[in-house]
Design a protein around this nucleic acid. Structure first.
Length: 358
RNA sequence: AGGGCUAUCGCCAAGCGGUAAGGCACAGCACUUUGACUGCUGCAUUCGCAAGUUCGAAUCUUGCUAGCCCUG
């Protein structure tokens, strides 16, 4: 019987090549794009993001070039409820969200997978740079071969059940090779710029997005120093994240960074770079990819920010879905709301949401 | 009212007669889940104002002006 796969396409090179590779593998494929939010700038080039009208057109043309059907599924409502609302609320509560992780969890590997199943497609494919392997009766999620493009960090929430139906054809390739393949196929997006930025936040103006989606106007407040002295005024806590330096509009003999966000008092604490380093923090909503909660503490590498390098730490399970992490060497800017992901060499053990620093 | 001190980019601050360091902030680019970090680039023909000495002054002199401190 024919193997069938649904390809989640963004309109970029990666998912296009992923589709091509699946077809090469002999899968019967359909391409699809999830419409996740209203494109305010239809027709306009959004070179830095995906999901614009142009991107949909790119995805459609690549699909047709590969001879596979292509559909656009509308998930605006779900996306707004599950992703954007949480994004807005996080910032309102002084927490820095990572919507891409939620989008993977709730949209691509949940809603979209359900749709695929209904259509009779049991495998879902994306252009993520990560690897799935089946070892000793278990699915294992690994980093991509191209370390510089590895996206396993945003996939820590996958489960055995989900991994069973997922394929990441690009996990073993370098970005350079992917572009070469795109060239070989003559894809029109072979040289398209990588997407980046949060897709629903054009120009990085997320204050505007927050208002658009029903967020409250947050009051301005005080910048305070580490001793509690008022040293200036800020624009509202949603404009800041731990470790931030730029955009503070305040000058000191040395650079100042956001070291604390207080959503109750609406204060932002500014300190020196060295004030950003911590060793211990709590993690909630932890997912263990193996499906088994470790019975005792263990050493591994922990990554607390998308582009930060993972560092050795001891991970202490405190319940079925919480954990205490202690770094051996202090880590910079551990930020509530961001993901803490646990690695053993190139295997992703799991991860969770950073809750608070203790 | 007398005495002293200081005036250099939005902020801090080098400079001490030889033709304006640096940091912060800001802007742009690169990188990027993050108006994050980080990196790169840019950012005072001009030193409170006026005049003088000098081949040459932000640097010396004089006079204004402003601020600070002390004494009454």
């Amino acid at each position: 019987m024919n193997k069938k796969a649904l390809i989640a396409m963004s309109g970029g090179v990666d998912s296009s090549v992923a589709a091509a590779l699946m077809i090469q593998e002999g899968y019967e494929c359909i391409g699809c794009t999830m419409k996740l939010f209203e494109n305010k700038e239809e027709g306009e080039a959004r070179p830095k993001s995906c999901c614009s009208l142009d991107d949909v057109n790119d995805a459609r043309r690549v699909s047709h070039a590969l001879g596979m059907p292509y559909y656009v599924f509308n998930y605006k409502k779900d996306f707004e409820e599950k992703i954007i609302r949480k994004f807005v609320q996080s910032y309102e509560h002084g927490v820095t969200p990572n919507p891409c992780i939620d989008c993977n969890r709730y949209m691509k590997f949940d809603k979209l997978y359900e749709r695929a199943k209904l259509l009779g497609y049991d495998t879902i494919v994306t252009g993520h740079y990560a690897r799935v392997e089946f070892i000793n009766g278990k699915y294992v999620l690994k980093k991509s071969v191209d370390e510089t493009k590895d996206q396993s960090y945003v996939l820590y929430d996958l489960t055995q059940e989900k991994l069973k139906h997922i394929q990441f054809p690009l996990g073993g390739l370098t970005k350079t090779r992917v572009r070469e393949i795109a060239e070989e196929y003559g894809f029109l997006n072979a040289n398209k710029k990588d997407s980046q930025d949060i897709c629903f936040v054009p120009d990085g103006d997320y204050a505007k997005v927050m208002l658009q989606y029903g967020g409250n106007v947050l009051p301005k407040g005080d910048f305070i120093d580490t001793d509690g002295n008022i040293i200036g005024q800020h624009q509202g806590i949603s404009h800041y994240t731990i470790g931030q330096r730029k955009g503070l509009g305040i000058s000191f003999p040395e650079p100042r960074y956001v070291t604390h966000v207080d959503p109750k008092e609406h204060t932002i604490t500014l300190g020196k770079n060295e004030d950003l380093f911590e060793t211990t923090f709590q993690v909630k909503d932890v997912n263990w990819i193996s499906g088994e909660v470790p019975s005792e503490a263990f050493d591994c590498k922990v990554k607390v920010r998308y582009r930060q390098k993972e560092q050795t730490a001891i991970v202490i399970p405190t319940s079925a879905d919480t954990v205490l992490v202690q770094y051996f060497v202090k880590e910079r800017a551990i930020t509530p709301g961001q993901a803490a992901v646990f690695y053993m060499d190139d295997v992703i053990l799991g991860g969770g949401v950073i809750e608070k620093i203790t």
